[in-house]
Lab assay of single mutants.
Amino acid sequence: NKASVVANQLIPINTALTLIMMKAEVVTPMGIPAEEIPKLVGMQVNRAVPLGTTLMPDKVKNYE
């Protein structure tokens, strides 16, 4: 099972992601793969992401 990116804290809307905000966890359904964490640093979320929520591609601005 592959790990996904999960919010390590509440991430407010329009916040630029940092390493400390994210952790890798095996979750269902799968979100953004954990190996993409370095790519996500500096990207902004387009909505608030509660603690423990899986980061889905549609929650990150300009994620492809």
Rank of each mutant, 00 (worst) to 15 (best):
L51G: 09
M30W: 10
T54W: 04
T54H: 01
T53H: 13
P29Q: 06
M22A: 02
T54G: 03
I20S: 13
M21I: 04
L10R: 10
M56S: 14
P33E: 05
N1F: 14
V49M: 09
T15M: 08
K23C: 09
V60F: 06
A34S: 10
V45M: 03
K23M: 08
P29D: 05
R47V: 15
P50S: 08
A34M: 06
P38Q: 09
N62Y: 11
A16Q: 12
T28A: 12
T18F: 06
I32R: 06
T54L: 05
K39R: 14
A24Y: 06
Y63P: 04
V41A: 01
K39E: 09
I32C: 05
L19T: 08
I32T: 00
M56G: 07
M30V: 11
G42P: 03
N46D: 07
I11R: 02
P12Y: 08
L19H: 07
L10T: 13
I37V: 02
G42H: 02
N14F: 11
P33G: 07
N62G: 15
R47M: 15
K59T: 15
V5H: 04
I11P: 02
V45Q: 00
V60A: 01
M56P: 00
G52A: 02
V41L: 09
L10D: 15
E64I: 15
P50M: 09
P29I: 08
G31P: 00
N62D: 13
L19C: 13
A16F: 15
M56I: 05
I32Q: 00
A24L: 07
I13A: 15
Q44G: 05
E64A: 13
V60C: 05
N14M: 08
P38I: 09
T28L: 12
Q44S: 10
T28V: 12
E35M: 11
N62V: 03
V60L: 12
P12N: 08
E25F: 09
I13K: 14
E35Q: 11
P57M: 05
G52V: 02
P57Q: 04
G31Q: 05
T54V: 10
A16T: 13
V5T: 04
I11V: 02
N8T: 15
T54Y: 05
L10E: 12
N62M: 09
N46C: 14
P38V: 08
S4L: 03
K23I: 10
K61R: 13
T18P: 00
Q9T: 10
A34F: 06
L10V: 07
M30K: 12
A16E: 11
D58C: 12
P50R: 08
T53V: 11
E36Q: 11
R47S: 15
E25V: 13
T18G: 04
T53D: 14
T53N: 08
L51A: 15
T18K: 10
L55V: 06
V45K: 00
N8I: 08
P29W: 08
T18Y: 03
L17G: 01
I37G: 01
R47G: 12
V49C: 09
P57T: 02
K59A: 15
E35V: 13
T18H: 03
A48K: 09
E36K: 12
I20K: 14
M43K: 11
A24Q: 06
L10W: 13
K39N: 13
I11G: 00
I37H: 00
A16L: 12
P12I: 07
G31H: 04
K23A: 09
M22T: 01
T18V: 07
L51K: 15
P12T: 07
V41M: 05
V45T: 09
L17A: 00
R47I: 15
P29G: 03
P12D: 06
A16R: 14
I11L: 01
P12V: 07
V26F: 13
Q44D: 03
D58R: 05
E25Q: 14
A3D: 04
E64Q: 15
G52L: 06
T28R: 11
V49R: 03
L40Y: 02
M56K: 02
M22S: 01
M56V: 06
L17K: 00
V41R: 04
P33Q: 06
I32F: 05
I37K: 00
T54S: 02
K39Q: 11
K39S: 12
K61P: 03
A16P: 14
A7Y: 06
N62K: 07
V49I: 15
N62R: 08
K2I: 13
T54P: 07
A48M: 14
V49Q: 06
P29A: 05
E64H: 14
A3M: 11
E25T: 09
N46V: 14
P29M: 06
A34W: 07
S4K: 01
I11M: 05
